[in-house]
């Protein structure tokens, strides 16, 4: 297990003003007032936390840092630790009604939105999932079960990959005969999903973490939106 370096001013290349600004962005989230009420430092969240067992990671440390508004430490945690969280919300059993998991969700969003280098690193290798969900409407699909993607799942994955087409045809629900998506999805539905991504600014988030992926997604989407008769997808 790699020990987490929590030394003060570890990220001295980033100004305190910038660290304060990022934390202000975290605090301005509409969910903020429901996720932190102070911290007893009881450690109940740590006892319930799966990630704390296998990483140098602590939901208590995160709750404490944000409760104390220690923006230097918060920046350090935002640059590393937050990506260890499993987002299981076992820590919601906090006696103070905090949700360290949701504090982390918000911190992750701010890290992605601001293109923090570590967010890019944490999401390396994740592009195929983003690609799937943005463009096809189902997040994962049968054809993702390939031995090179899941070598630790053993020979079983070879068997699935080798028989994929026939095994999909041997599924009684008529909607499940697909391989590139998990079920049949109407074109109109996919177009509606693209419009949601555009209207909610999600496309800008993707550009911030992976510009190459963004270009590919935009190419495909724009063509399909145009075909469907949408030339203006701007939204207030």
């Amino acid at each position: 297990m790699m020990a987490l370096d929590l030394s003060q001013n570890k990220h001295s290349d980033v100004s305190m003003d910038e660290k304060d600004r990022l934390f202000d962005e975290v605090k301005s989230d509409e969910r903020w007032e429901h996720v932190l009420y102070g911290c007893y430092e009881c450690g109940i969240c740590v006892a319930a936390c799966p990630s704390a067992r296998f990483y140098d990671f602590s939901p208590r440390l995160i709750a404490q840092a944000v409760a104390r508004e220690d923006t230097d430490l918060i920046y350090t945690l935002m640059s590393d630790s937050i990506w260890d969280c499993s987002q299981c919300f076992s820590c919601d059993r906090c006696p103070r009604q905090n949700s360290p998991g949701q504090i982390i969700t918000i911190m992750r969003e701010v890290a992605v939105k601001n293109g923090l280098g570590t967010a890019k690193e944490a999401l390396a290798g994740y592009g195929r999932i983003i690609y799937k969900i943005m463009l096809t409407g189902t997040q994962v699909s049968p054809d993702m079960l390939q031995p090179d993607a899941f070598p630790d799942w053993g020979t079983h994955v070879y068997e699935i990959a080798d028989n994929l087409d026939d095994w999909r045809r041997a599924l009684p629900p008529e909607t499940l005969h697909t391989t590139e998506t998990s079920w049949v999805i109407d074109d109109k539905t996919i177009i509606e999903l693209y419009l949601i991504w555009h209207m909610t600014g999600v496309m800008d988030l993707i550009a911030g973490v992976d510009e190459g992926l963004y270009d590919i997604i935009v190419d495909v989407m724009e063509e399909r939106l145009e075909e469907a008769g949408y030339d203006d997808v701007t939204f207030d």
Partner: peptide
């Protein structure tokens, strides 16, 4: 939950 490449509105 994995990547935070979305937001509450979306």
């Amino acid at each position: 939950y994995a990547s935070a490449t979305s937001n509450p509105e979306a």
